[in-house]
Design a protein around this nucleic acid. Structure first.
Lengths: 189, 189
DNA sequence: CGTCTATTTGAATGTACTCAAAAGCGGTGG
DNA sequence: CCACCGCTTTTGAGTACATTCAAATAGACG
């Protein structure tokens, strides 16, 4: 149950048996069916989630009803609405299982406890946040400096583990274009 | 010289005198004239910079010559090309002073030393990265879900301390539109 | 004061969207 | 296991948003 997350953490810090046990005890396991929600836009975002298996999608629905995919998450990835999680606010995004999934859930309170009780975990979480920042920064640059077509082909190359499991409509909403236009891009090759 | 950065750090962790002295000793101070470069695209990104005063801009020049503003930084902000800094690679972006500025420079090596010698600084840096991630995530959502006009007026509201010091051309390149189109947006009010 | 760059304006163009309808495909239940 | 239903994907026509290019005007800095 916890080997995936432990080996994820061991990439950055090492723990003794006691710490490992304490860490494991802080998570709740949740099984999700296809299309089931982990979080609904508007509900307080209380947890951060580690994906043990399956695939999830976070999306934002703007006031006009347009859907934007904020992120996908596969095995070994973390997913939450970080802003609303950190401040315990109503979520801006919904998080839904794209395929049957198993996730480990960690509440804000328990994360804070972990970081206080095992300070070296700050290092692990710092690197997590740093990588997340870098990813988003690259995405901003690409969104602003490249055409929709370039962004599509880069997505295919960058996330081969995601592509087979999600619909074109979902990819389009990740890229910020309409499904019709994505279809047109694909047609011209 | 170091009061700004120390009070920035004290928002998250407290240090004793010895730690404070050690921390201060790790920085180099750099004065920049208007238009002077802190980092040029292609050079190894060796430092992360804390802005003591002035204002800086990081921008990306794509192969077609289109310029994208990645971020602005004012007093109390940090700026670097985080991906290339973390991996000590040639920078994707250039960082230039928009106005005369004073920055504190911290090399990767010295940052690593600081985080190892004073582990509680990991917490401070974690929060820094977390906030940066949240900011970029919000920017991605806004870029994808809002019109250029909405993004412009939100920028004016969100960064009143930046707006008076940068050109419209620079704001346009931050928003991902042409200066001509920004001019048209402004004209219709 | 002169020069250089930023900003504005306008016309022509291109990229991406909307709406509508047909075709394809996958999950679900019988 | 097959057939149906609903959603996804495709196609096409018309439109809107944003760009390009060019030229005039305004502003800022040395």
């Amino acid at each position: 149950m916890y080997q995936a997350i432990l080996s994820h953490i061991y990439k950055y810090v090492s723990l003794n048996e006691e710490e490992e046990a304490f860490l494991s005890s802080q998570f709740n396991v949740t099984q999700l069916k296809r299309k089931e929600y982990l979080l609904q836009q508007g509900n307080i975002c209380q947890h951060i989630h580690f994906v043990n298996e399956g695939i999830l999608r976070a999306y934002f629905l703007n006031p006009e009803g347009k859907e934007t995919t904020v992120m996908f998450a596969v095995k070994d990835w973390w997913i939450t609405d970080m802003y609303c999680f950190a401040n315990q606010l109503p979520a801006m995004v919904s998080i839904q299982a794209v395929a049957p999934s198993q996730v480990l859930c960690l509440s804000k309170e328990r994360l804070d406890t972990l970081l206080t009780e095992i300070p070296k975990l700050e290092r692990w979480f710092r690197i997590l946040m740093q990588n997340a920042y870098i990813r988003e920064q690259l995405r901003v640059i690409q969104n602003l400096s490249q055409s929709a077509e370039d962004r599509y082909y880069e997505f295919l190359e960058k996330y081969p583990q995601i592509v087979p499991h999600v619909t074109q409509k979902q990819i389009a909403s990740y890229l910020g274009i309409t499904p019709e236009f994505l279809s047109a891009i694909r047609a011209q090759k």
